[in-house]
Simulated assay, not measured.
Amino acid sequence: MQKIRFGTTLYIGEESLERLSDFKNEKILIVTDSFIASSDLLSRIKSYIDSSTEIMVFSEVIPDPPIDNIVAGLEYSKDFPVTILLAIGGGSAIDAAKAMFYFGKLTERFNQIRFIAIPTTSGTGSEVTNFSIITDDEKGTKYPLITDEILPDEAILDSGLVAGLPPKQTADTGIDVLTHAIEAYVSTSANDISDALSEKAIRYVFTYLERAYKDGNDKEAREKMHMASTMAGMAFNIASLGLNHGIAHAAGARWHIPHGRINGILLPNVICYNAGVIKGNYTKNTTPAANRYAEIAKFLGLNAGNTQMGVRSLVNAILALEKRLSIPKSLSEWGVSKKQFESDKNVIAEAALADRCTETNPITPTREDVISILGKSFI
C-alpha cells in the first residue's frame, strides 16, 4: 500500500500573485535571500499584500542553508507574532523556510500559521514537496529533512518571476528538474501517478529548457519549465529519488558545486550504472531500470529498437542537451582537483549511501559502486 498526498494548493497562471491580496490583518514573515530582498521582485510581490498586513523580512538565507542560518531566522523573528510564513526564492530560501517552519512548530510558535511558497526559479519543486535540504558546514554534509510537517499549504506559481533568470541558472535548475523526473520514474516507489507527472516533466524539459536558456523572455518556455519543476517535485514527493541525488548532496556540499550542475554531471553515469552498463558494455541481464530508461527514450521519440539502444539514446540525448546548455562534462572540468577527488571520494561515498534518497534507487549500491561512478564523473 502506498500513501499519496497532494497537500499543497496551487495558484497558477497570470496574476496568480493576486492570491496575496486575499489576506487582511495578518503578520507575514517573509523568508528570502539578500539578492531578492534588494530586487524589484520583492517589491512587486509585496505590492499585492494588503496595507492592513504587517510584514517582516528575514533576508539572510544563503545557498545550501546551514543549520546556523535556520537558527538565525528563528531568532530574528522571535518577537514577531507570525500568522503567515511566506518563502520567496529558489530551493535554498524555500528549504530554509521549511526548516524554520518545522522547528517553529516543535516549539509551538508556528502551530496555527499558514505556510506559502513562491518559487523564483524553475528547478527544485520544493514548493510542493516534504523535503528540505540542510547543510552541516562543519562536516561538509547535506541532510534531507523529510516529513509531511513541512509541506507548504499553498504555492503561487507565477512564471513572470523567472523571466530574468540568467542562462547559467536556467540551465542548472532545468537539469535539476530533469534529474528529479528521471529518478522518480525509475524509483522503486514509482507508481502510475508519479509516472504521469515524471513523463510530462521530462517531455517539457526536452521541449522547452533550451528555449528558455537561449531566450529568457520566451514566455511559453518559461511557463512550461515552471510547471515542469512543480510536476517533477510532485512526482518525487510520491516516489522519492535515487543515487544521483544521494551522491549530489554529498559531493555538492563537499565541493560547493551548484546542485543542478552536479546532478547533470552525474546523471549519464548513474543511468549507465542503474542500466547495467560496465565499461561501455551492457551486462548479460537487462536490469528493470534499463527497461524504464528505454521507456523514456521511446516517449521522447528517440531510437529505442531494443532496451540497450533506448538507454544509449537517452544518455546521448542528455549529453547533447547538457552540451548545448554549457553544463560541464566532468567534475574536473568544473574545477575539482585530482587531490580533492582522492581525498574526499571515500567520505562522499559513505555519505551518499546513508542519504535517504539512495534508499529508492533501483539498484542497491555498494561503496565501491559509488566510488566508480564518481571516478567516471571526474574524468
Rank of each mutant, 00 (worst) to 15 (best):
A201W: 06
A201D: 01
A201G: 06
R203F: 07
R203K: 15
Y204H: 05
V205C: 06
V205N: 07
F206N: 08
F206A: 04
T207S: 14
Y208W: 10
Y208K: 02
Y208P: 00
L209E: 00
L209M: 03
E210P: 00
R211Q: 13
R211N: 11
A212H: 06
Y213V: 05
Y213A: 02
Y213E: 05
Y213F: 15
K214S: 06
D215T: 09
D215E: 13
G216S: 03
N217M: 04
D218W: 02
D218S: 10
K219Q: 01
K219H: 00
K219S: 02
E220D: 12
E220T: 13
E220W: 02
A221W: 03
A221F: 07
R222S: 00
E223G: 08
E223D: 14
E223K: 09
E223H: 07
K224G: 02
K224V: 08
H226L: 05
H226F: 00
M227V: 02
M227W: 08
M227Q: 03
T230M: 11
M231R: 05
G233N: 05
M234F: 07
M234C: 06
A235G: 10
A235E: 11
F236P: 07
F236V: 07
F236G: 10
N237K: 13
I238Y: 10
A239L: 11
A239D: 11
S240V: 04
S240H: 12
L241P: 12
L241C: 10
L243Y: 03
L243P: 03
L243M: 08
N244C: 15
N244K: 04
H245I: 14
H245W: 08
H245E: 10
H245N: 13
H245F: 08
G246L: 09
G246I: 09
G246C: 03
I247F: 04
A248H: 00
A248S: 15
H249V: 12
H249E: 06
A250D: 10
A250I: 10
A251W: 06
A251F: 05
G252S: 09
A253E: 09
R254H: 00
R254W: 00
W255F: 15
W255M: 04
H256D: 09
H256Y: 07
I257E: 01
P258K: 07
P258M: 04
P258S: 06
H259N: 06
H259K: 10
G260T: 06
G260L: 08
R261Q: 15
I262W: 08
I262A: 01
I262P: 06
N263G: 13
N263E: 09
G264C: 04
G264K: 06
G264E: 01
I265V: 14
P268G: 06
V270D: 01
I271A: 09
I271D: 11
C272D: 14
C272N: 14
Y273T: 10
Y273S: 09
N274Y: 02
N274V: 03
A275N: 10
G276M: 09
G276N: 09
V277L: 10
V277F: 02
I278N: 03
I278V: 15
K279M: 08
K279D: 15
K279S: 13
K279Q: 13
G280C: 03
N281H: 05
N281Y: 04
N281W: 01
Y282R: 00
N285D: 14
N285F: 05
N285S: 12
N285Y: 06
P288N: 07
P288Y: 07
A289G: 09
A289V: 11
A290R: 03
A290K: 11
N291T: 04
N291F: 05
R292Q: 14
